[in-house]
Design a binder for these strands. Structure first.
Length: 270
DNA sequence: CTGAAGACCTGCCTGC
DNA sequence: TGCAGGCAGGTCTTCA
């Protein structure tokens, strides 16, 4: 479901509600998510001190322990009243002091949760090989150019490679490439440094705008309060095959790159 | 090392 | 109405 903007919107919704609350009880209705859900009872009685994000992972800090949470394709994380009934596919529930109940729903069960030492979470296999955050200064034109050097894969595939840069999925890769005027199938290693610098800036712009709009809602995505995002209305190419390009009027096309649907404008992307 | 393809799961939509 | 097929925001493993 969610790419970086959606996860960040959820984080912003949850952080002020959870910070300072004590975890009272954990109810796990299905342990067979992407990885087996570990025993979370060790967290009971502890206080959630902070909710952070790394790439598409949410990081819930409980003093010296960290609960890392990935929403996969269809995961939803909601802050509800304790009394709210369990919805279909609600696999995990964390009840906090003050009557707040964190509910996890995930029809496809591609999501996962992990427990680790807060001091060394960056050494965990989920995080060890991740590239920079796209909205920090670590991700810029020179960095992207060095990451693309010698790579024969399509630029869209490189943008979606979490070892290169985290958080960019199928939607925002398509949108950023359209904004930068680069064809998604273009060989990454054969794009000029100037154009890759333009692309790095486009990535930042697209992600920032999506966060400001509350994320993109197609299918399952809702934020921690159950609200839809509005960025889908601003899509330039994603899901718009056959419709006119807002910039040049040509009909947008769809193709498959590395097994994923890709959308682009034959008029303004080369 | 790189890249391609298949795997994991359920739900929804299309077309016959 | 039913059923097969294709598709969906992610990422991990296997294989060449």
């Amino acid at each position: 479901m969610p790419e970086l903007p959606e996860v960040e919107v959820i984080r912003r919704g949850l952080a002020p509600q959870l910070a300072g609350r004590r975890l009272l009880a954990v109810v796990c209705r299905r342990r067979d998510l992407r990885y087996p859900v570990p025993d979370l009872d060790v967290l009971c009685g502890r206080t959630c001190t902070n909710v952070a994000r790394r790439g598409k992972y949410l990081l819930f800090f409980f003093d010296e322990l960290l609960l890392a949470w990935h929403l996969g394709m269809s995961g939803q994380l909601l802050a509800l009243p304790q009394a709210a009934a369990a919805a279909k596919h609600e696999h995990l529930r964390l009840d906090f002091s003050g009557g707040l109940s964190l509910r996890y729903r995930d029809a496809r069960r591609f999501g996962c949760v992990g427990l680790m030492a807060a001091a060394r979470w960056q050494d965990h296999p989920w995080f060890r090989h991740l590239g920079p955050e796209p909205l920090t200064s670590d991700f810029d034109g020179p960095y992207l150019a060095s990451a693309c050097r010698g790579r024969r894969a399509a630029i869209k595939q490189v943008l979606m490679d979490a070892r290169v840069v985290v958080g960019i999925g199928n939607i925002y890769a398509a949108e950023a490439l359209h904004l930068a005027g680069i064809h998604p199938a273009r060989t990454a290693g054969r794009i000029s440094k100037a154009r890759l610098t333009h692309l790095a800036a486009a990535v930042k712009q697209v992600l920032s705008r999506a966060i400001a709009a509350g994320g993109s809602s197609i299918r399952d995505y809702i934020d921690a309060a159950g609200r839809s995002g509005y960025f889908a209305y601003a899509f330039q190419v994603y899901g718009r095959a056959g419709l006119p390009c807002h910039r040049c009027g040509r009909r947008l096309r769809r193709c498959t790159i590395a097994g994923r649907s890709s959308f682009y404008c034959p008029g303004c992307q080369h």
